[in-house]
C-alpha cells in the first residue's frame, strides 16, 4: 500500500489544517522512508509471495525493524517529537499518529509478515490480515482512501480560500487536483508493478 497512505494524509489535513501537508505526506511514508536504506543494505528484505498472481501486493516483506509493531511505535514517536519542536504539541501528536497510521493500514494488507517486537525478537506470531491476497479488494480500499482524502482536502481547502476572500480558490482546486492525480497515478504505478 502506497497511495492509500497519501489519501489518509490528505484527509487528515482537512481535519488538522494547521499541520503542513508536506509534513503529513512525509509522516505517512516515514516507515517506508526508513525502510529503504535498510533494504538497500540487506538488513530488511522482500520476497515474492508464492500465492501472488500479479505485481500488486505480491511481496512478503521482512521489515523486522521498521515495520514491527514496536519499531513503528518508536519511529512514530521520533517523528512526532521532532515535529513538535517545529510546529508545537498538537502538530507533534497529529504527525506521530499519522506516522503510526502507516503500520495500521499495512496491517490490513500485509500477508502476516509484520513482527510484534523489533528484530522479531522471540519469534512471536507475525501480523497482517492479508488483503493483498485479494488485489481487487485492497486496490479498492486504496482507491477509496485516495478519493476520500482528496475530496475532504478539497472541501477544506475551498472553505479556507473562501474565508480569506476567495482569491486562492483556483489554488485550492489545483492543490486538490494534484493530490488526486498523484494519488491515482501512484495507485496505477503500484498496480502495474512499476513501484516494486
Amino acid at each position: 500500500m502506497i497511495a492509500g497512505h497519501f489519501g489518509l494524509a490528505a484527509g487528515v489535513k482537512a481535519k488538522e489544517p494547521a499541520v503542513p501537508l508536506w509534513a503529513l505526506m512525509l509522516a505517512t511514508s516515514w516507515l517506508d522512508v526508513v525502510f529503504v536504506p535498510l533494504f538497500l543494505t540487506g538488513v530488511e528484505t522482500i520476497e515474492k509471495a508464492p500465492d501472488a498472481t500479479g505485481p500488486y501486493g505480491a511481496d512478503i516483506i521482512h521489515a523486522n525493524y521498521t515495520h514491527s509493531l514496536f519499531g513503528a511505535i518508536v519511529l512514530s514517536l521520533v517523528f512526532g517529537f521532532v515535529a513538535r519542536r517545529f510546529w508545537g504539541d498538537r502538530a507533534g501528536v497529529v504527525l506521530g499518529l499519522v506516522a503510526f497510521s502507516h503500520w495500521v493500514l499495512d496491517l490490513l494488507v500485509h500477508r502476516g509478515d509484520l513482527p510484534i517486537l523489533i528484530g522479531n525478537v522471540g519469534h512471536l506470531p507475525t501480523l497482517g490480515f492479508g488483503l493483498w491476497r485479494y488485489p481487487a479488494v485492497s486496490a479498492t480500499l486504496e482507491l477509496l482512501l485516495v478519493l476520500g482524502g482528496a475530496w475532504l482536502y478539497w472541501r477544506a481547502a475551498r472553505a479556507t480560500a473562501e474565508a480569506a476572500g476567495g482569491a486562492q480558490r483556483a489554488r485550492a482546486d489545483l492543490s486538490a487536483a494534484l493530490i488526486l492525480i498523484f494519488g491515482l497515478g501512484t495507485l496505477a504505478a503500484d498496480l502495474s508493478g512499476f513501484l516494486s
Partner: peptide, 30 residues
C-alpha cells in the same frame, strides 16, 4: 527507488501549491 522519487515529487509539488493557501498557522512553541 521509484517509490522515493514518487514520494519526493508528491511532497515537493503538492507541498508547494498547498503552502500557498491561507491555512491557519501551527501553534507557536513557548
Amino acid at each position: 527507488m521509484a517509490y522515493l522519487i514518487e514520494l519526493f515529487l508528491f511532497i515537493v509539488v503538492v507541498g508547494i501549491v498547498d503552502a500557498g493557501l491561507p491555512w491557519p498557522r501551527p501553534e507557536k512553541r513557548q
